[in-house]
Design a protein around this nucleic acid. Sequence first.
DNA 1: TCGTGCATGTAATGAGTTACATGATTAT
DNA 2: ATAATCATGTAACTCATTACATGCACGA
Lengths: 180, 180
Amino acid sequence: MPKPRILPNVILGLLDNHPQMSGRDIENEFQTEIGEFWQASHSQIYPELKRMLADGWIQMVDAQPGDDGKVIRYDITSAGRTHLLDWLHEPVNSDNDALSSLKLYFIHNRTSPTLTSILTAEIRLHRAHVAHLQEREQQLFGSSSLIEQQYGHYLILKRAIEREQNNVVWLEQTLKELKP
Amino acid sequence: MPKPRILPNVILGLLDNHPQMSGRDIENEFQTEIGEFWQASHSQIYPELKRMLADGWIQMVDAQPGDDGKVIRYDITSAGRTHLLDWLHEPVNSDNDALSSLKLYFIHNRTSPTLTSILTAEIRLHRAHVAHLQEREQQLFGSSSLIEQQYGHYLILKRAIEREQNNVVWLEQTLKELKP
DNA sequence: TCGTGCATGTAATGAGTTACATGATTAT
DNA sequence: ATAATCATGTAACTCATTACATGCACGA
């Protein structure tokens, strides 16, 4: 099966929050706001908009008074909104975990159940990852001290453990503060 | 200019540490040891080995007694080792920073100057990144409290800051422990 | 009027994944 | 014997990046 395409979901998320965007507007978002976490070039965006239009996820809207000539503005359709929500609610697993941060970007309300569900699933995954990395550390550098012979490998393993542990702490703290 | 290819450097790094590897051996490394941090499939590896052979970075070695039939084993050449070292010593900047961890994997000696230089450059970059993210936080969520309207965005920005700060602390600590 | 930015579009290239494919060896 | 694994190789497809390209609007 082919890899799931992310870009259309991102575009839907942007249109859901800012109606009547043009392709250029979307490109600008990728260079500023969401650009910290995700990028796309205009040569991806324009063909993607065409496809989404054909799929009925977005629709063209009339040009606004201030617009000059060739601007094309889009709105998300109800079919598009359904697709977006389906994507946001897809169960978080080790394959798609990297997209969790991106999904969070499109959740605007702190009381959203989707938010809680993503954070909870992430905690589970990253705890498991910490355990896996610690096991690797034991296997590789536990008994016989090969640290000095493979110092770089040792360092990045240590860094990965540190990063994942910190991530788990942050997730737990964030989830806790969400509750009350 | 086309994107720099990473795979040949990774293969050189592996061959530098384990002589006389076959394509299959390299594939196995990608699934186990280094697989935590980098992956490649055999359909990339085999053509890449051919190219590297043509470039003179590696050479074939005679099959070992236990080998069956079609195994092809390779060694790194002095030209290959030069290329590997050049890559490891490339200045760390914001474009190639993501590869720093990968490079560390190929540094076996804790007294290596390359190690110090990479860690020092990383500290500089990630400090700058923290500053940039904090500035974004101020811009977006500083004065007027838009946090509740863009809660997901707020969260991933916070997480990014936390992650980068933790990274800087780890780098500083690691560098300090390297010195004495 | 001339350069720069806006807004959209297509083409060429390259890198990676999945799938297809073959022959040899080893285990059941 | 035959199924699974080893070891190598090629082909098809997708995705993303870079480059190429057009026409309009606006300011110097």
